[in-house]
Amino acid sequence: MIIEHPLLGPRDAAEFVYLGDASLIARPDWENPDAGKEFFEYLYLRDNPEGMHRELWYHEQGDRSWLVVTRNTLTHEILNVELARQIALAMGR
């Protein structure tokens, strides 16, 4: 797979480390009254969809940026690549 890095252009997926679902950006607030349940769902439960999947890749053998890659889990086709930093900032994190 070739990941179209927003800053560096096309890079081999072998340069990256995979973390998982991009929902991991939205870490719950530990002060919420339901924090225990929210952290259980955040840490352990996954949608695990067949088809479109937004996921976190880390460019370990590159510029060490975190990317959010939108990829089809049925065909491995990559549809969109964004900097995770910008998505997190847009979410107010």
């Binding site: 996954r46 695990n48 889990t73």
Partner: peptide
Amino acid sequence: GSSSKVMAQAGMRLPIES
């Protein structure tokens, strides 16, 4: 292999990735 897909039909999310 397809547990998440099938159990989603019962409204469940699982601690599983395929």
